[in-house]
């Protein structure tokens, strides 16, 4: 039973809890990412994708493995549902996975801030998510090898637009989700 163990499992353990939360994160991200897209005025390339906040949030709330799976598989499923194909942009799925993985390490790296109440947790979550977005999406520069794209094209057409949109979603929605989830978590006895 899940409630029997008194010892907190390692963040790298893959138990049924990790499997289920991973699947939930990936399914939610895959379903919601294509629906909500908010264009930023004055830009043709930048869309705010609110569902993206799920990737850092699942990493922060349930650990790096869940974050990695949510980003990696969720992005593949979103691409699959849209018809783009599961593996056409495999490097983008890996980039999404890295974001979730890095965000998942935040509670460990920001331990002192993490234990100082809900507001600090929300701020730390937004900060960790933002750093994870900026670092994780550096992986899309592999398009320079995969598609022989020019550095400035990847930077201006892909990296900058995606991190602007995803930073907005992360900074605003990750704290909202942390605020919504923490009371539920306490109620569930987690």
């Amino acid at each position: 039973m899940t409630a029997m163990s008194m010892q907190r499992p390692s963040i790298w353990a893959v138990d049924s809890r990790v499997i289920v939360y991973s699947a939930i994160g990936a399914a939610l991200y895959g379903v919601l990412v294509g629906i909500f897209k908010i264009p930023v005025p004055g830009s043709t390339a930048v869309d705010v994708r609110p569902a993206f906040a799920l990737v850092p949030f699942f990493g922060i709330a349930f650990g790096p493995i869940v974050g990695l799976f949510t980003g990696l598989v969720g992005n593949m499923i979103g691409d699959q549902i849209s018809g783009w194909g599961l593996l056409t942009s495999w490097n983008w799925s890996i980039a999404n996975g890295i974001v979730g993985l890095l965000a998942g390490l935040a509670p460990m790296m920001l331990a002192s801030m993490w234990s100082k109440g809900l507001m600090n947790k929300a701020i730390a979550g937004a900060a960790a998510g933002a750093v994870a977005v900026v670092v994780g999406f550096l992986f899309v520069f592999t398009d320079m090898i995969k598609d022989q794209m020019d550095f400035s094209a990847v930077l201006s057409e892909e990296y900058v637009p995606v991190i602007i949109g995803d930073l907005i979603a992360t900074i605003i929605l990750v704290p909202v989700l942390i605020y919504a989830w923490e009371p539920v978590k306490d109620r569930l006895g987690r």
Binding site: I19, A27, G74
Partner: peptide
């Protein structure tokens, strides 16, 4: 992880 992928597809319609 293969099971998680399977579970993901099963969750999609209910979500």
């Amino acid at each position: 992880f293969a099971y998680a992928i399977d579970l993901t597809w099963r969750f999609i319609p209910s979500f």
